[in-house]
């Protein structure tokens, strides 16, 4: 079953086609890798899929309630509420909020009390905040950050900030999760933990995951299928083995260094 597909998706910045004519299909519960040299357009593609940028051309469709729905150009918050979650390459946590509150912001759309209940502290406020508190703690357990729950997000070490971003994305209750270079800046041990974490959340949260990553061993290790972007265009797709031996891919990467 297709959960997400694009057709001829294009985004121009001035004269530059950062994403050019990209058509792809993601199936339910797949773990798909998106690779390519620096500046290939991977992050821009994520930004299109999550509504941060509007497409210049082409369509994006997401499976919503059993039907493919066009989401191209919708606002990010609408798209998130349709079930897409994401992390950012350049970490974008709410730095001055605690670790726990970062998660609670992610759960915001799923908190059920009105402004008046908040202001006058009706019982519903306390019961909802209690539920949110407990669920947020459970998400922190998944990424092993319960001990740090009261720290400000900005005070976490780099690797933990990346994990917190993943937990925060999970808090929005996504069906499809985009991870933009989650292993960037991590040491090999942290990367191994991250690999396990990605596998675990995919199963436990019944997710479809699309992963941008520079760490080739991680990509080849966890991804079932890989798309390769170069200069905004899709130049290859397939399973890890076929990608490893693909001539165009090798050339693209050789050109980089």
């Amino acid at each position: 079953m297709i959960v997400l597909q694009t057709k001829n998706l294009t985004r121009n910045f001035g004269g530059l086609a950062a994403v050019s004519n990209v058509s792809l299909e993601i199936k339910k519960n797949e773990l798909v890798g998106l690779i390519g040299p620096n500046g290939a357009g991977k992050t821009t593609l994520f930004n299109l899929l999550t509504g941060v940028y509007e497409p210049s051309e082409g369509t994006i469709e997401l499976l919503v309630d059993g039907n493919l729905k066009s989401i191209g150009g919708l606002k990010p918050y609408t798209i998130t509420n349709f079930g897409i979650g994401r992390t950012f390459q350049n970490i974008r946590l709410f730095k001055e909020l605690t670790v726990l509150d970062n998660i609670k912001v992610g759960m915001n759309q799923n908190i059920n009390y009105g402004v008046l209940t908040a202001i006058f502290r009706f019982p519903k406020y306390y019961s909802e905040e209690k539920r949110v508190h407990e669920e947020a703690l459970k998400l922190l357990e998944v990424v092993n950050l319960v001990d740090k729950k009261d720290e400000l997000a900005k005070n976490l070490p780099y690797g933990e900030q990346r994990k917190l971003e993943i937990a925060r994305a999970l808090a929005t209750n996504p069906r499809v999760l985009f991870l933009d270079e989650p292993a960037a800046g991590m040491n090999p041990i942290e990367t191994q933990e991250l690999t396990d974490l990605i596998r675990k959340i995919k199963d436990d949260f019944n997710l479809t995951i699309i992963l941008i990553e520079h760490d080739m061993s991680l990509v080849m290790n966890v991804c079932e299928r890989i798309y390769v972007l170069d200069y905004g265009k899709l130049i290859a797709s397939g399973d890890p083995d076929s990608i490893k031996n693909n001539k165009k891919v090798i050339e693209a990467y050789l050109g980089e260094d």
Partner: peptide, 10 residues
């Protein structure tokens, strides 16, 4: 703190 991240939280 971060308007884009906020929107991405729904």
């Amino acid at each position: 703190e971060d308007e884009i991240a906020s929107e991405t939280m729904g």
